[in-house]
Design a protein around this nucleic acid. Structure first.
Length: 111
DNA sequence: ACCGTGACGTGTC
DNA sequence: TGACACGCCACGG
């Protein structure tokens, strides 16, 4: 089903990301599934365009293993880990500890 | 239009 | 586990 690709998917990715509670994290794939984008890469692509003024907590999005795969795109690169730690999340070797317990699913937005 | 490039993920070996 | 191939899809050259 599929419907044509939502032409506003970038805004949707921002909206979902802004819904992630502080101290929690989700994945590129979870957001892609929720928005039926068909490709998790599109989530990373969209988040790559985030600017500070957008107020989008992109640091709360990690890959399926809980790794900070997007860290190199922050300024400075250490900012992603620092922001997570500021929210109480422990990062070890570029990976979120207790990833499974801290995972937040966008489906929680549904009624 | 073709091709390479990714903040990705699943399946297989 | 871990490496790798492959599918995915928007974008730029």
């Amino acid at each position: 089903m599929a419907g044509p690709r939502n032409s506003h998917y970038v805004e949707d990715v921002y909206a979902v990301t802004q819904s992630i509670p502080p101290g929690r994290i989700t994945t590129y794939g979870a957001i892609a599934d929720f928005l039926t984008l068909g490709s998790a890469r599109m989530v990373g692509w969209a988040l790559n365009k985030v600017t500070p003024g957008d107020q989008v907590p992109a640091h709360r999005v990690v890959n399926r293993k809980g790794e900070l795969s997007g860290r190199t795109h922050f300024k400075p690169p250490s900012a992603m880990q620092e922001r997570l730690e500021a929210e109480g999340i422990v990062v070890v070797d570029d990976k979120v500890r207790d990833f499974k317990e801290l995972f937040w699913s966008p489906t929680e937005l549904l009624p």
